[in-house]
Amino acid sequence: MARVLDDLVTIPGTRITLGADALVGLVPGVGDAATTAMASIILFDAVRARVPLPVLARMVANCGLDALLGQLPLVGDLADIGFRSNRKNLRLLDRALTDPRRAEASSVAYLVSAVVMVLVAVAVMVAATLFALWWVARMLGLL
């Protein structure tokens, strides 16, 4: 998923890659919402693997920052190319899974905390998308 979202194709003659996040994100509001939903799959994998909460919090912050930057016209599209939140989250997940010293979290409190963090992140992303759509509609005189 991270490869599809961040590194799907390489621009000929360069080392710059584009993924679905940058390409679909060109569609105002809806594109970023769709790619954010796809990016949340990595978060759910992290929750299922019971990565430590600090790692999960960094992953959620990466997704949230990517979603917020994506709401800014043109700047958000450039941020999708430069920030690569999905690649960062995959590296965080890989490190958490391969680090033998990682904490084993098996309590109900861990699961509740993880689910709440993911739900809050998704709610913030949805709110940002709805605000962007409202703003665009208002600027076009539809509201």
Rank of each mutant, 00 (worst) to 15 (best):
M1F: 00
L5N: 01
D6C: 00
D7A: 01
L8Q: 05
P12I: 04
P12A: 12
G13M: 03
T14L: 10
R15E: 10
T17K: 04
L18C: 03
A20R: 14
A20G: 13
A20S: 12
D21A: 14
V24P: 09
G25H: 01
D32N: 13
T35V: 01
T36P: 08
T36I: 02
A37P: 06
M38L: 14
M38F: 09
S40E: 11
S40M: 10
I42S: 05
V47H: 04
R50N: 01
R50V: 06
V51L: 09
P52E: 05
L53W: 14
L53D: 03
L53Y: 08
V55C: 13
V55I: 04
A57I: 05
R58S: 09
M59L: 01
A61G: 04
L65H: 07
D66L: 12
L68F: 13
L68R: 11
G70Q: 08
Q71T: 04
P73H: 05
L74H: 09
L74T: 01
L74W: 13
L78G: 05
A79Y: 11
A79R: 11
I81N: 04
G82K: 05
N86F: 00
R87P: 15
K88W: 09
L90R: 06
R91W: 01
L93I: 02
L93E: 00
R95H: 09
A96Q: 08
L97S: 14
R101M: 10
R102H: 15
A103E: 12
E104C: 02
E104Q: 07
A105C: 08
S107V: 09
S107I: 15
Y110L: 04
V112K: 08
V112W: 10
V115N: 11
M117Y: 09
L119I: 06
L119N: 02
L119A: 06
A123E: 10
V124N: 15
V124A: 12
V124I: 02
M125N: 15
M125G: 14
A128S: 15
L133D: 03
W134A: 10
V136T: 10
A137F: 14
M139Y: 05
L142N: 13
